[in-house]
Design a protein around this nucleic acid. Structure first.
Lengths: 245, 245
DNA sequence: CTATAATTCAAACGTTTGTTTGAATTGCGC
DNA sequence: GCGCAATTCAAACAAACGTTTGAATTATAG
């Protein structure tokens, strides 16, 4: 197992970032030790603290290195969408999703940063999630505003939830395309990024455009209402159907 | 903080399961120590090995305890959907999503198992994900078959990907509804499970029903072609679907 | 009560973790 | 060559981890 790059003249710092990125994505941040990282990078254990101060510093550097260009590309594509006059939802969806999928494709077999981000979004109680959220804040604000403009009449709460759903579908896809293969027994091909982009784009665009029938007419919401456990007056808590407060 | 349940006569075993479930969901499995769990449960450190053999045994028990009833409920609702003649997609979506959201609501402030599952699906290189996948296998097969029947003409590959997107949106929602609050600055109310169920259901149902226009007209696929290394040629190697590593 | 099993407990085990240290090595301007 | 800073290195650090042990305690049965 070579690990260390020899083709391009990379310094120890970049070797560490590369190895950390790859191992974090493969094994998870908490389960990846500095010894494993430095061994994979062909560096000394203490080099992490020499360059990054601590493990958390290394984690922060791994994310910062990629998020800058990624979000810049997203905002660039967003602005391009906003020049066209009928502001198309499919364009917004693609502007948000495509850079990640492109990164996913470019990384094939190497760094897996996209998967790392997908994971980080699901990690609770961790510094990492807050870090990722902070990196995404501007993107979130700009995109939700654009979606709100493209969908006049849809309340902000609805916009935010749908954005939440979109992030989930994308993060889950980025985090584990191999999982799709596990589901399908090999029918899905994670390497087909162009197809994946089209499929995900169509799915999400349709979701964004979904008609909003309000409270679902009481008869339709569930084919049958009486099933055992929960009906026993237990936690009825919220009033029916949707919007309170 | 009290931690130990006193109202109902619970044994040490259940106390450990409850505490583990709560802490796993809050801090992550890897970051939660047995000492933290036993302290929260008011039990001795060695009791984990007495009842579960190892930490992995405890993890397995935590998942097994909830997945049985959860998946049974899903399959029950699925069968109910399949009795109605026009097999409705919205019914299938709701059968898959509602039990988790219901669990999410019932847990409010207590166990957070739904969030734990959401996290587990995103964890790579871990026993936990395989465990969750194994628990889900039957549900996956049954539901994908039903979706395929409700959407005749849609190829299996497409069905699997859309199922993948649905799982992602749902898992992300279950894993971090608090995250929605962080996004929105408090506009989203994670406690409004009925509204969430309606919103997520509409979003996903529309996604499932999305029209599948084939390859996107060659001019639409990307607004600009200039940047990036990999794109200069044909992007659409759709047919072969081969793994060209 | 006595005997026997089930359960709890404090203490320690050996690893592995992130971190620190101080000397050895390297790179480079002069 | 010399000198100084940058970098690398082996070794050790305390702390936290999962795990094990064997005795103390509690429940159960005869």
């Amino acid at each position: 197992m070579s690990a260390r790059q020899v083709s391009t003249a990379t310094g120890t710092r970049d070797d560490l970032l590369d190895a950390a990125e790859r191992l974090f994505a493969k094994e998870g941040i908490a389960r990846t030790s500095l010894r494993a990282i430095t061994a994979a990078a062909g560096a000394n254990l203490a080099s992490v603290h020499y360059y990054f101060g601590s493990k958390e510093g290394l984690v922060r550097a791994v994310f910062a290195r990629r998020f800058g260009p990624l979000n810049r590309e997203r905002l660039e594509l967003l602005e391009r969408c906003e020049t066209a006059e009928p502001l198309r939802i499919s364009c917004l969806v693609d502007a948000f999703v495509a850079p990640v999928l492109r990164m996913l494709a470019a990384e094939a077999g190497t760094s897996h940063f996209a998967r790392l981000v997908g994971r980080a979004l699901a990690e609770p109680g961790d510094r990492v999630r807050e870090l990722v959220l902070e990196e995404l804040r501007e993107v979130i604000e700009r995109f939700t505003a654009a979606f709100a403009r493209a969908l006049p009449g849809v309340p902000r709460r609805e916009i935010l939830w749908r954005f939440h759903f979109m992030v989930g579908a994308m993060a889950h896809t980025a985090a584990g395309t191999d999982l799709a293969a596990a589901f399908s027994g090999g029918v899905c091909d994670p390497g087909d990024v162009a197809g994946l982009r089209r499929r995900l784009g169509q799915f999400l665009t349709a979701g964004w455009k979904a008609a909003r029938h309000q409270a679902p007419a009481a008869t339709r919401t569930r084919p049958t209402a009486g099933r055992g456990a929960r009906s026993s007056g237990r936690q009825r808590a919220r009033r029916r159907s949707g919007v309170q407060r």
